[in-house]
C-alpha cells in the first residue's frame, strides 16, 4: 500500500479531526494511548479528556474564524 499522508481536518467551531497513524505525547513525553483510528483533538481548550475532544466546544459556544480558501 502506498504511503498515505496523515490527514487533518480543521472542523469549523470544533476539533481537529486526524486520520492516519500518529503518535500523541504529553508535554512530559509520555505516550497518550490512542484508542481509535480517527481521533478528534480538542481545539477549544475546555475538553475534560484532552488532548481529545469531548464535545464541550458546543456547550461553551466555541467559534472559529472561517478558514481561508486553500
Amino acid at each position: 500500500m502506498p504511503d498515505v499522508p496523515v490527514q487533518i481536518v480543521a472542523c469549523p467551531n470544533g476539533p481537529l479531526l486526524v486520520r492516519g497513524e500518529i503518535e500523541i505525547r504529553t508535554p512530559d513525553g509520555a505516550r497518550v494511548p490512542q484508542r481509535r483510528r480517527t481521533v478528534a483533538l480538542c481545539r477549544c481548550g475546555k475538553s475534560t479528556i484532552k488532548p481529545f475532544c469531548d464535545g464541550t466546544h458546543k456547550a461553551i459556544g466555541f467559534v472559529t474564524e472561517p478558514e481561508g480558501d486553500a
Partner: peptide, 8 residues
C-alpha cells in the same frame, strides 16, 4: 470520546 469524533 468516540461520538465527538463520529459527530464530525
Amino acid at each position: 470520546e468516540a461520538d465527538a469524533v463520529h459527530e464530525q
